[in-house]
């Protein structure tokens, strides 16, 4: 699914880096933050946040390598 098709969010990310993975990282940001705001600090939310950050860093490295 292309996140640019999402309502409201699509208007924001159409000016991004034209990269679907980064668009998804942007879209998932509020979801990740809401998860630890609502559920507090536990193993699951810690894992989600760690995964979120890791995905961004890993993707930057991958994008540099591929391009």
């Amino acid at each position: 699914m292309n996140p640019k098709q999402l309502p409201v969010v699509g208007a924001v990310i159409q000016y991004g880096a034209d990269d679907r993975v980064l668009d998804w990282i942007l879209v998932l940001g509020p979801v990740v933050i809401t998860s630890f705001v609502v559920f507090g600090r536990n193993a699951v939310t810690t894992g989600i946040v760690a995964l979120y950050l890791l995905a961004f860093v890993a993707y930057l490295g991958y994008a540099e390598f591929v391009r």
């Binding site: 990310i13 509020p30 961004f56």
Partner: peptide
């Protein structure tokens, strides 16, 4: 777009 993306990442990192 860049600023909002980095905001989410920064908040997550600090938490």
């Amino acid at each position: 777009w860049i600023f909002i993306l980095f905001t989410f990442l920064s908040i997550s990192l600090l938490w």
